[in-house]
Simulated assay, not measured.
Amino acid sequence: MLLRPSLFLLLLLLAHLANAQSSKKPLRVGIAGMAHDHVHGILNKAFKQTGQTDIEIVGIAEPNRELAERLAKQHGFSMSLVYPTVAEMLDKTKPEAVTDFGPIVDHKKTVDICAPRGIHVMVEKPLATTFADAKQMEALAKKHKIQLLTNYETTWYGSNHKAYAIANTDKSIGDLRKIVVHDGHQGPKEIGVSKEFFAWLTDPVTNGAGALFDFGCYGANLSTWLMHNERPLSVMAVTQQIKPDIYPKVDDEGTIILTYPKTQTIIQGSWNWPFSRKDMEVYGQTGYVFTVDGSRMRIRLKDDKNEKAVEAPQTDAPATDSFAYFARLIHGETKPDELTSLENNIIVMEILDAARQSAKTGKAIKLPK
């Protein structure tokens, strides 16, 4: 029986698409360090989510054997994947990309070893512990033409992307005047983080600061994005140790004020909230948009008598999670997102560095033009 040309072409197209899907290989990923509790996200995805095909964990670098064995038992991966150093893991497994789940101070070491090999890197937030380290990482990434991403949970919130569209694409609330970002939780000890995570998170050398860096980075990232990567004129920060018995080395409360020519941002990062929160208020000349969580929002525009509750679908975000996005980016299936861009995160580090200096000196820090 002869097929009609239109039906034949349709079947040919479907066969081509099926072959393309089957030939698409997952991104070969190596993990550098496992002392950051966010590592559970990628381990769950790689070893427990049946049907996911965007990433494959080919090697893990973790010198703490006890930690690696504990996580291997919890997530069901073989200890044959684990190597004592990043260099050995790279040599033996040849990953296309590396995700860093070690102390923030180690991010630079990971880029130092991966970039010359052409291996892409994604680190957990923030990018580094100092602005100087961040600039060196940027130079290496550009020299060796690799992607260097910083992963923030809030990047994958549909609400944030809808808020950005309302404020900047649709311009429904007029020129931006004030941005207020709240991030944090009751405290690392209070929420029960692992002993390995707690050790470096509460050390000013390995984490850069306490809540100031841990949660101040979210607001710096979002504000920079909303302001189209404009650097602030000045940075002022105040930190406190409300619980010095628990956090003797670092701040547990940090507030940062960023001034722009016609806009102000207030960033409130805390280990003292009564509950976990990641929400934002964006005020324009004629309206406002609030994000309550990853999907819920409250909006009031110029002619509204009352604010409206709105739901933002997850599809408003560039991907369902950072690892799917990383794979799509490296496979050339998407373009870099402004929110995860290296340009944005270099500005974030300039802000955090200045905030730490401001908190120490009690003075506002003017950023060089």
Rank of each mutant, 00 (worst) to 15 (best):
A115I: 06
D293I: 08
I60F: 07
R296K: 15
E62Y: 09
V181L: 01
G102Q: 07
K243H: 10
H144P: 10
Y152D: 13
I266K: 04
F323R: 03
K302Y: 09
P313H: 07
V111W: 01
L7T: 10
K135H: 09
D316T: 04
L13A: 15
F198K: 09
K92L: 12
S23C: 05
R4N: 14
D337M: 08
V235R: 03
L9S: 14
P368R: 08
N19Y: 10
I365P: 03
A220R: 00
D91K: 15
Y283G: 12
E338K: 13
M1N: 15
K189G: 05
K171S: 03
N306F: 15
I347Q: 11
F47G: 00
Q357M: 14
V348I: 03
F77T: 02
V292Q: 14
F326L: 02
V238R: 15
T50I: 07
V29F: 03
A364N: 11
S159H: 04
P336L: 02
G254P: 06
T361G: 11
I256R: 04
L17A: 15
L43S: 01
D54G: 05
S322M: 11
R117A: 13
L258Y: 00
K48V: 07
L71N: 09
L212Y: 04
K178D: 12
D183N: 08
G210P: 06
A32V: 13
R117Y: 06
T154W: 01
N344K: 10
V193A: 05
Y218V: 11
T99Q: 05
E124H: 05
F77D: 03
L339Y: 11
S80W: 10
S80I: 10
S194Y: 04
L10V: 14
Y288R: 13
P204K: 07
A15T: 11
P204C: 08
P95A: 00
L352Q: 01
V98K: 05
F47M: 00
S172V: 08
L148V: 10
T334R: 10
N168E: 12
V250G: 07
T155V: 08
I60Q: 05
K278S: 12
A364C: 09
D251L: 06
I299N: 02
Q357E: 14
E138M: 12
P188M: 09
Y157N: 12
V310A: 02
P84R: 03
